[in-house]
Amino acid sequence: MAEKSAKNVLEPYAWLLQIITGLAMVGLVTFHFLTTHMVEHALSFESVSLRFQDYGYKIIYALLLIFVAFHAFNGLRAIALDTEFGMKRKKLVNWSMVVVFLAALIVGLYIMFLF
């Protein structure tokens, strides 16, 4: 039980990062929502590619991507570990979340560097 798994180094940082990314995302997601909904035709191919050519946007979107991906998959990881089923397969859960996180980053960056 708890004694066996006492050497647990990552959980505290996962929790801290979940809070930090969560707070940062409140600002970033609001920004994302406003840029895509405040202007007409903000989602047409042209305006999307125009935005992505701007370095400011690129940096903000890269940050948003990293934060969102971490927050989402660390959240799912926590949900999975809350169950006996997930806890029994702790390593599998942890590693698959790392893989999905990286995959999301790669897909996201790929999209960004199309422009």
């Binding site: 999307v48 590619s49 969102v68 989402a72 999301a104 897909v107 996201g108 999209i111």
Partner: peptide, 12 residues
């Protein structure tokens, strides 16, 4: 999020 990223892949 997963759907969103998949959707945006069509930007290519």
């Amino acid at each position: 999020l997963i759907l969103h990223l998949a959707f945006l892949s069509t930007l290519s």
